[in-house]
Design a protein around this nucleic acid. Structure first.
Lengths: 219, 219, 219, 219
DNA sequence: CATGAATGAGACTTCATTCAT
DNA sequence: CATGAATGAAGTCTCATTCAT
């Protein structure tokens, strides 16, 4: 379905790095070309436009994520294990491939409303997977059904996403400082959320979520 | 501290509408000027640059949000009530002022990494308020301290934010479609998260969060 | 109807010179801007695009030509005098404003088929004026109606146009030599049509049109 | 002199169609290659550049035209018959091969001033042929020498050319509309010159040239 | 204070041409 | 001879910002 070629992949990889570094709007096509080691025009042999490049990158990376999460969930038995597998797989991916994660978490979803609507579809896959796990747990009586599964899934996703965002922004990378010259951001004040160990976040999320979902033994 | 004048406020209001409609990068300064009913150059009498306008808008709106949430929490007694007051106040604001919410939730945080770092500070205030509530509940023994309060606060914030985002994107508004003409977004597939009643989200968040935080009666 | 301003006119004048010098496709917007003494972007304050500039130039100049020819014809009495007035006015304009004539005769009609269709309308005015004169002469019995007036008008126009073209191309101007580097045009061979006195062409056209080549039986 | 090969000819034929359809500047070398069924690079095995391709096409077609006209004139006896043979042969060619005619009449002469100067040479052959016929008629006393033969030839050529142009532009072909989207050409107003029978034009040209507009006193 | 015409740097994209296979 | 992927120079147009009025 998606055309593949080594050069196309090199361009996608370069775009991932450049978008992560400079942001979609600020990134120049020429930057990506240079990073990929190709001529400017070559990019247009593989992608219709800068927008198309962004979308292609998004799809390429989301395929990976969805495959990874799907496999992790499939390998687990009980709803609780599946949920934890999902959470750990996602957090693990963040920790292992922070550049890819940054593009996915920050740049890709943010460029245009068009992009966001587009991305909604791909995240939908992920959300449905998660919602299925929750519905399963609710159906088995293990978890409360006070919150409809699709919304519970979305909230859990929000937790994961926010933790990912906090961690990614807390990392140091020689990023850009702005398009303009004006203000500088205020000095970094630690709000308890920066520079933590992202792997521990899996347990925190698990703890918050499962205790919330689990039916009380005695009430 | 922040300079005030009716014209400045008109420009901020106009920017809010235009950014919500077109997105930060796509919005033209001239659009904002026209929306505000002033000349292009006038904007530069009140703001140093387009970036500065964005930041000023952000600060102006965050002040309101922080004040609102602070008041809501202050008016409540117990940690549980404070938490619910926080959640309900935020969700209520989303429902009442969707345009402002859209700018805050979507555009403002997403323009540049610079902006996001900048915004981290202002959201920090909000997160600290929430973390304080949680710490209070943990200290009183009402809530488990399995998750450090700052991280719990961030996760709760992620839930709220994601619900707001899902609801805002699910609404219809004659938005832009992109810079280019190339691809069209795939047809909208309902993932169970679109077009729901945002007010109910307050209860869902409350249910998920408090049941997770509450210590078990018998363990 | 057409918006006027000194700067707009300066740009049109500059475009006339640059198009005459370099041709429409070869001319760069930057060239025109420099020739007009304005910034590149300024051109887009007065014209939507390079195409629009070309069309506007065409309309501006055709208005002049049509007005001139209309006045010349109106000032004459008999069909024969009107015809000669038309011919002399057009040839005179070529002689007086060769740059404008060059753009009209050569560049403007040649850029795109679109342009040519567009120009057909404006030349239509001129052709209808001429056809009216001929029809008048035919109606009065002075002229033969062997050739329908509209076609006769077009043929006469073809004669004028070709003479103008031959003369304009025969003049020396430090023109471009090509877009590419390849071949050079063959050395100029005089074909009897170059470097003649354009003013005499009026009489030739008049003689050929009214009397034809055949020698009169009785004179 | 001119190298020949089936592939070279296929490319020339393809170029003729593509130039007629899109115009010289708008036509892409890749379009011509596709139309010819060869690879882009192959074109450069037979032609030095796009310019060279245009010139070669021009020469190829002009050879045909000159040969055709030369033969037609040679086959006739009197100057009057030769003139009519010339006119009929040219008009007949327009009618039979409108695509070739379109390229010759419209695109080829209009690309660059370079091209036009170049073309002047080839049209020179044609003009000299015609001038010779006229000079012959003048020498024999059959025709008036009020107009020098070379200029008379050029005027006659102008008539033929204009009639060809009018007819070619009046035909419908799924042409391009421009580079930009801006203005639309004004609605087609019939000026009495569109969609006529081109074959009749031969008689009109003959009548106007030989007899002129003035009604004969005694015939 | 306000205006808005003017600026000009810079981006995306096209396409004629080349050259390794 | 033929291919077609790759090149990269160059052009049109946009838009944040300035400044004379």
């Amino acid at each position: 379905m998606t055309p593949h070629s080594p050069k196309r992949d090199r361009i996608l990889d370069a775009a991932e790095r450049v978008f992560a570094q400079r942001g979609f709007f600020t990134a120049k096509v020429a930057d990506i070309a240079k990073e990929a080691g190709v001529a400017d025009g070559t990019i247009y042999l593989y992608f219709k436009s800068k927008d198309d490049l962004l979308i292609s990158l998004f799809e390429s990376r989301m395929e990976r994520v969805n495959a990874l999460l799907g496999a992790a969930v499939a390998a687990a038995k009980t709803p609780h294990e599946k949920l934890m597998a999902f959470v750990r797989a996602y957090i693990g991916m963040i920790a292992d491939q922070p550049t890819a994660a940054e593009v996915l978490t920050i740049e890709l979803r943010q460029s245009t409303k068009f992009m966001r609507e587009y991305s909604a579809q791909r995240f939908g896959e992920l959300l449905r997977l998660l919602a299925g796990v929750i519905a399963e747990g609710q159906a088995s009586g293990e978890w409360s059904d006070a919150v409809p599964a699709p919304h519970a899934a979305r909230m859990i996703w929000g937790m994961l996403d926010e933790m990912a965002l906090a961690w990614l922004l807390g990392r140091d990378h020689g990023g850009r400082s702005s398009s303009g010259r004006g203000r500088k951001p205020p000095p970094s004040v630690d709000d308890g959320g920066r520079k933590f160990d992202i792997v521990r976040a899996a347990d925190w999320v698990g703890a918050l979520v499962t205790q919330g979902l689990e039916r009380r033994s005695h009430v």
